[in-house]
Amino acid sequence: MPAVVYILKDGSERRVEVPEGTSVMLGAIQNNVPGIEAECGGCCSCATCHVYVEPAYADKVPPPDLTENDLLSGVAAERKPSSRLSCQINMTAALDGLTVRIPEKQSL
């Protein structure tokens, strides 16, 4: 099973296995990884599952679609080129080791 590495707000890392087809957001919720709120449950309506994808994986993750890109303009923390909504990144074998950094805050 592929793994996701979450870098928490305090800088520590949590490595968890996330089944293929499951989102990086759900992987965090199901493993009690703090800092990802996902208020809308993953339907791309709330921008509270914001993460920064680490540079090594930037090219491996498919780019955001129009809705996600638009919603990203409203994240609570700073929007960076590496910003993504983790509910929109589904795990694949090729993404094994995907490392994402959790932002300072998710709510306004």
Partner: peptide
């Protein structure tokens, strides 16, 4: 568990039961 998908994605089979709990057992 999440309620909004119950009238949308869950009914349509696009949201699976495993995705519904708001918090994990670990929480």
């Amino acid at each position: 568990y999440q309620r909004p998908p119950l009238s949308k994605g869950y009914l349509a089979g696009k949201v699976l039961p495993a995705a519904l709990p708001l918090r994990s057992e670990a929480f």
